[in-house]
């Protein structure tokens, strides 16, 4: 059993858990992920590592409540436990001194991009952070990102905070302003990562994206997470989760992401019917 040491509500439906898992924390690196299972009848879900504390033996994960499992996870409190927690899985980010690096986080993707930005800066890079959210109340970790980056720019889709625009708008400005950028790391919803990749392709700017494919075991055993990268089939769990954004087949990714949409709906409806939905965000279970 793995204890929830800390719980924070970062934004409506976005929650942070710090979970006690010393063996995972010892080895965790930026860019890797964990898989957890809440209880005996639960499913295994992958979550990207948002932070780790080796001394405390804890891993921080940030997740958005979208389906049954993430909703159920959100109902746990400090002191509660998840049944299973395994990691660190996947290949760590390739941290090096590239020169100038842009780290783009969209929505809940800000969380996994944070440790990468921090590591990039520690490696000597000038790190320009870009974080975007749909609206003001969904912005989180601005302070942490500011500390991790050499420079941070924030944007909201609706202009309710700092400025109006997508992360790609800001990225375009940064590229034009700074010119010489060695690497772009972008994590967020697949459409955002695709938009970033489409933009940077024009500038021949190498772009790394982190995929959140469906998974079962997370150790290369099932192939559920396969994705086409540069015409080759890769397993997100062991070959990724990071890939060259210019080579990822985002069409395929989007279609494979919704394989279980009807079942996910059934599970969520049933969960809500049973009174499982306890969040206080006023969303009424939607």
């Amino acid at each position: 059993m793995y204890k929830v040491l800390k719980k924070e509500i970062l934004a409506p439906s976005i929650k942070l858990f710090e979970i006690e898992a010393p063996l995972v924390a010892r080895k965790a690196m930026a860019g890797q992920f964990i898989i957890l299972r809440i209880q005996d009848q639960g499913e295994r879900i992958p979550l990207t590592i948002a932070d780790f504390d080796r001394e405390k033996g804890a891993i921080t994960c940030v997740f958005q409540e979208v389906g049954k499992t993430t909703r159920e996870l959100g109902t746990l409190d400090e002191g509660d436990c998840v049944q299973d927690f395994v990691g660190p899985l996947g290949v760590p980010s390739d941290i090096d001194n590239y020169g100038r690096v842009v780290c783009v986080g969209g929505g809940v993707g800000v969380a996994p991009v944070y440790p990468i930005a921090r590591a990039m800066k520690e490696a000597g890079n000038e790190v320009i952070g870009i974080m975007g959210a749909r609206t003001a109340e969904l912005v989180f970790w601005e302070d942490k990102m500011r500390a991790a980056c050499s420079e941070l720019r924030v944007t909201t889709d609706d202009g309710s905070y700092v400025r109006k625009g997508f992360v790609t708008d800001v990225l375009q400005e940064v590229i034009q302003e700074k010119g010489d950028i060695a690497l772009c790391v972008a994590i967020g919803p697949p459409p955002m990562m695709r938009a970033v990749a489409n933009l940077t392709r024009k500038y021949n700017l190498k772009t790394v994206v982190s995929l959140n494919s469906l998974m079962v075991d997370g150790t290369g055993m099932c192939g559920c997470c396969r994705v086409t990268v540069g015409g080759e089939t890769k397993f997100t769990c062991v070959d990724g989760p990071e890939f060259d954004g210019h080579l990822v087949d985002f069409d395929e990714l989007a279609r494979r992401a919704v394989i279980y949409k009807p079942q996910e709906r059934t599970a969520l409806d049933l969960y809500n019917e049973k009174g499982g939905h306890k969040c206080q965000c006023g969303c009424g279970g939607e």
Partner: peptide
């Protein structure tokens, strides 16, 4: 599906008992 995925979802994750168990299989 790979047979591994098909069987793992069914045997290990008990997808045949969905929605009592959370793991789906189509």
């Amino acid at each position: 599906y790979s047979a591994n995925e098909f069987l793992t979802r069914t045997n290990l994750m008990k997808a045949y008992l969905f929605p009592d168990y959370d793991t789906p299989l189509r």
